[in-house]
Amino acid sequence: MSDRVLNFEGIHNFRDYGGYDTPVGRLRTGLLWRSGQHGAATAADLASLADLRISTVIDLRGDSERALAPCLRHDGFDGLVLFAPGETAGIELAPHEEAGRGITTAAEARGAMTRLYAAMPYRPILVRSLTLYFEALATRDGASLLHCLAGKDRTGLAAALLHRLLGVHADDVMADYLLTNTAGDPARRIASAAASIRERYGPQMSDEAIVALMSVEADYLRTAFAAIDERHGGVEAYAAEVLGVDAARRQAIAARLVA
């Protein structure tokens, strides 16, 4: 799994989420990239990104997040950047930041994150962003980059939805999601967010609570899919009814991504 991770100086959690088996072939590598935001990308990072020839960027952040940390691009970047205007997290915060309200312990942090995941598949602006994501995968050539702020919650859900819709085995779906916890330098990634989280919510938050907010757990993703199953009976029905991803669109995506 670590072979799919690319290490950057100012970009966290950057990795290829292709390469998994599906019932009709294997997801191609080098086409599906995911990460955190690129606001702190270095010149070396941007040079490495240029080599990936990314033609489509799907930004799942909200307007306020984009304003605070505009993503940097290399000089030759001529790709399309897609996002839905508005706040994808509901209250101008990334999910892990939103979950931090009133939190002091790791158990409280995990509970808050679990509750957020139950609602995340139905947040209106995020739904619009996910619709743009799947439309791009079905219609645009070349490599794509999917990202939010930390590249773990909104991005993790989106990548897992794609994997599930293309028939990637459940174990691989979960392994890709959990790779956030070991990809790159997780300690540096967590430390980079700790100060801002404590500044927002107070110094009483424990180190363990910070780690819980900045990590992912299997129960988080299971909660999101349980909410989908309860309301729609499965991922395919959810995708068709909420995201406009019907059988024809799934086939179009598979034709571009599965070899």
Score class of each variant (00 low, 15 high):
residue 40 A to W: 12
residue 212 A to S: 04
residue 186 P to N: 00
residue 229 D to W: 02
residue 192 S to D: 12
residue 256 R to C: 06
residue 25 G to L: 09
residue 43 A to Q: 10
residue 203 P to K: 14
residue 13 N to P: 01
residue 20 Y to C: 11
residue 125 I to W: 04
residue 237 A to D: 13
residue 105 T to A: 10
residue 55 S to F: 10
residue 53 R to E: 13
residue 79 G to W: 07
residue 48 S to C: 10
residue 235 V to A: 13
residue 204 Q to H: 14
residue 19 G to L: 03
residue 101 R to W: 12
residue 6 L to D: 02
residue 55 S to D: 12
residue 18 G to W: 04
residue 70 P to D: 08
residue 36 G to L: 01
residue 196 S to G: 12
residue 255 A to W: 03
residue 131 T to E: 10
residue 139 T to K: 11
residue 119 A to R: 12
residue 132 L to K: 02
residue 207 D to N: 14
residue 126 L to M: 07
residue 146 L to C: 04
residue 236 E to Q: 12
residue 256 R to E: 02
residue 15 R to W: 05
residue 228 I to H: 05
residue 83 F to L: 06
residue 51 D to H: 15
residue 31 L to G: 05
residue 202 G to H: 08
residue 223 T to N: 02
residue 140 R to V: 05
residue 16 D to L: 06
residue 193 A to V: 08
residue 103 I to P: 00
residue 257 L to T: 09
residue 75 D to R: 14
residue 71 C to T: 14
residue 68 L to E: 13
residue 30 G to V: 04
residue 7 N to G: 13
residue 31 L to Y: 12
residue 146 L to T: 10
residue 182 T to L: 08
residue 43 A to M: 08
residue 84 A to C: 05
residue 230 E to P: 03
residue 174 M to S: 02
residue 38 H to N: 08
residue 237 A to R: 14
residue 77 F to A: 05
residue 205 M to K: 04
residue 28 R to T: 05
residue 182 T to W: 08
residue 56 T to R: 09
residue 78 D to I: 13
residue 27 L to R: 05
residue 46 L to K: 00
residue 129 S to W: 06
residue 207 D to T: 13
residue 236 E to L: 11
residue 213 L to N: 03
residue 97 E to D: 10
residue 55 S to A: 15
residue 32 L to C: 02
residue 138 A to R: 04
residue 76 G to K: 08
residue 176 D to I: 07
residue 207 D to H: 14
residue 195 A to R: 13
residue 95 P to W: 05
residue 149 L to M: 13
residue 199 E to H: 11
residue 155 T to M: 03
residue 77 F to Y: 12
residue 117 Y to E: 04
residue 245 V to L: 06
residue 195 A to L: 10
residue 108 E to Q: 15
residue 198 R to H: 03
residue 47 A to Y: 01
residue 216 V to D: 02
residue 39 G to R: 09
residue 25 G to Q: 03
residue 140 R to S: 10
residue 99 A to L: 01
residue 157 L to P: 00
residue 118 A to Q: 11
residue 243 L to H: 00
residue 1 M to K: 11
residue 223 T to G: 06
residue 205 M to S: 03
residue 188 R to H: 11
residue 77 F to K: 00
residue 227 A to T: 07
residue 38 H to D: 09
residue 27 L to N: 02
residue 37 Q to S: 11
residue 17 Y to I: 09
residue 77 F to S: 00
residue 165 L to H: 06
residue 51 D to L: 15
residue 182 T to P: 01
residue 103 I to W: 01
residue 111 G to H: 02
residue 92 E to A: 15
residue 85 P to D: 06
residue 187 A to I: 10
residue 74 H to A: 09
residue 258 V to E: 04
residue 249 R to D: 02
residue 134 F to M: 02
residue 107 A to V: 12
residue 114 T to C: 15
residue 218 A to C: 09
residue 252 A to I: 03
residue 202 G to T: 08
residue 140 R to D: 05
residue 28 R to S: 10
residue 170 A to H: 11
residue 33 W to V: 07
residue 84 A to K: 03
residue 197 I to M: 11
